[in-house]
Computed example of a mutant assay.
Amino acid sequence: MHRRAYLAAVGTAASAGLAGCSSALSVLEDDPCTGDNCHIGMNRTEFLPEVYEIAAGDTVVWKNTSEAYHTVTAYEALIPDAADYFASGGYESQTAAYEGWDDHGGQLGTRETFEHTFEVPGTYEYFCIPHEGAEMIGEIVVSE
Rank of each mutant, 00 (worst) to 15 (best):
P49D: 03
G57N: 02
E29K: 07
A14F: 13
H70T: 14
R44M: 09
T71I: 13
T71E: 01
G138I: 00
T113W: 12
V141D: 03
Y85E: 06
E53T: 15
D31L: 13
Y85L: 08
E53H: 06
T59P: 04
A14W: 03
Q94K: 04
E92H: 06
H104D: 13
Y52N: 14
T45G: 02
V51D: 08
T73W: 12
H2F: 10
D103S: 10
A68P: 00
Y75E: 07
G17S: 10
S23W: 05
D103T: 13
D30K: 05
V120F: 04
S26Y: 15
G57L: 00
S93V: 01
E67W: 07
S88K: 10
A68C: 09
G122A: 04
M42Y: 03
S15M: 14
I129P: 03
A55G: 09
A14G: 00
D31P: 01
V141G: 08
E46R: 12
T95P: 01
V120T: 14
D36N: 09
E125L: 05
S26W: 15
A82H: 06
E76L: 07
I137N: 08
S88F: 10
F127W: 05
E119K: 14
A24E: 06
A97W: 03
N43A: 05
H131T: 06
G105V: 11
T110C: 06
T123E: 12
T95F: 06
A55C: 03
I129W: 07
Y124N: 11
P121N: 06
N43G: 02
S22P: 00
E76T: 08
P49W: 01
C21Q: 10
T73F: 10
L25A: 14
A16G: 09
E50F: 05
A77K: 14
I54M: 09
S23P: 00
T117L: 04
T123Y: 04
T73V: 12
A5V: 04
F114Q: 00
V61W: 01
V72P: 00
S66I: 11
H131I: 02
G109T: 13
T71W: 11
H104V: 10
A8R: 14
L48R: 11
K63L: 05
V61G: 01
V60K: 00
G89D: 12
L48D: 05
T117P: 13
